[in-house]
Design a protein around this nucleic acid. Structure first.
Lengths: 147, 147
DNA sequence: ATAAAATGGACTTGCTAAGTCCACTTTTAA
DNA sequence: TTAAAAGTGGACTTAGCAAGTCCATTTTAT
C-alpha cells in the first residue's frame, strides 16, 4: 500500500507553489522539484480541473493556488489522485467474495478506511510549508537562474 | 492506494481457518474462499514463514492458526504482504527529492503513516470472525462435500 | 506403494502507473 | 505582427510488479 508518484509530485508542487508569491510556470516547478516536465503537465491539469490551482496562459503565465494553504487538505489531493477511494478490491468487485453483502469483514475494513481518510483530512498544505524557510530561499535563487 | 489482493486473500483465508476446529487443506480454503489454488499456495507459504499459521504435510495435512484470533492483528499481515511499510516512494528512494533529509514534509507523512499503521494494529482477526456464524455453517457444509 | 498433502522456486501474464509526444490555443514582448 | 513562451488535450508507449501458473520435490497416512 503506497501513495502514487502522482500524488507525491502533486504535493511537492503545491508546497512549492505555496512558497511563492507569484505564479510559477511548469518548467520552474519541474526544475525546482526535479519532476519530468511532461508528466508534471498531466498532473497540473488534474489540479486545475480539481480546482486546487488555477493557471494563466501565454508569456509570464503559470500556476497559482486557488485557496490559502491552510484550506487545502491532503484529502483533497487524495481523492484526485488515488481514485480508488476504497482500500479493498472487494469493494470494487463484489463478485469476488463468496460472502457477498453480508460480510462481517467489511465492517472492519470500513473502520480502517475511515481512519486512513481521517488522517488525510487532518493535514493541510500549510503544515508542509511553514517549517523550512531555507528551502524557500533556495528555490527563489533557482528562479532567478531560470528566468 | 489499495490493499493488495494477496493481503485480502490472506485475511479471508485466516478468517476461514479461525472458523474451523481442525486443520484445513489448501484445496479446502481455495474452494471455500474462491481463490486460485496455486496462488493461495504462495500466500500460505508467506503465512507459514511469518509464523502466523503452521502446517502439516501428507494425508490429512493442512494449515492451522498458530495463535488465537484475538492475538493476530491485521498489522501482522500488513507487514508480511505490504512490504513497503513506507507509504511514500521518497522514503525508499531519497535521491528523488531535492530537499533530501531536511524535509518538513516528511514529518507530516510520518504522522499519516503512523495513523494508518495504528488503524491496522487496532484490529484483530477476532473482530472479523465472530459475527457471522452463518458463514461458518455454510463452510462446514462445503467441507463435507469436498472431503 | 500410492495418493494426498505441503514446499520451493522459476516462470508467465496482464494491468496500470508512469512517462512521452504532438498538435493546438493563448498571451505578450519585441 | 510575429515569434517565443506559456498552458491544454488526448493518444500513445514503457516499464515495473502484482497476480497468477507450473513443475519437480518432500512428507505422511493408509
Amino acid at each position: 500500500m503506497q501513495i502514487s508518484r502522482s500524488m507525491e509530485y502533486a504535493v511537492r508542487s503545491l508546497v512549492y507553489l505555496a512558497s511563492s508569491n507569484k505564479p510559477l510556470s511548469l518548467r520552474q516547478i519541474a526544475k525546482g522539484e526535479n519532476i519530468p516536465a511532461p508528466y508534471l503537465a498531466k498532473i497540473m491539469r488534474v489540479l486545475v480541473n480539481g480546482k486546487i490551482v488555477n493557471s494563466t496562459k501565454g508569456r509570464n503565465g503559470g500556476y497559482f493556488l486557488l485557496s490559502p494553504p491552510q484550506k487545502i487538505a491532503l484529502y483533497d489531493l487524495y481523492i484526485l489522485f488515488e481514485k480508488k477511494e476504497k482500500l479493498l478490491p472487494c469493494f470494487e468487485n463484489a463478485s469476488f467474495c463468496p460472502a457477498g453483502k453480508n460480510c462481517s469483514q467489511k465492517i472492519v475494513w470500513f473502520k480502517i478506511e475511515k481512519a486512513v481518510m481521517d488522517a488525510f483530512k487532518k493535514v493541510s498544505l500549510k503544515e508542509m510549508v511553514n517549517k523550512n524557510k531555507l528551502r524557500k530561499v533556495k528555490y527563489e535563487r533557482s528562479f532567478n537562474q531560470i528566468t
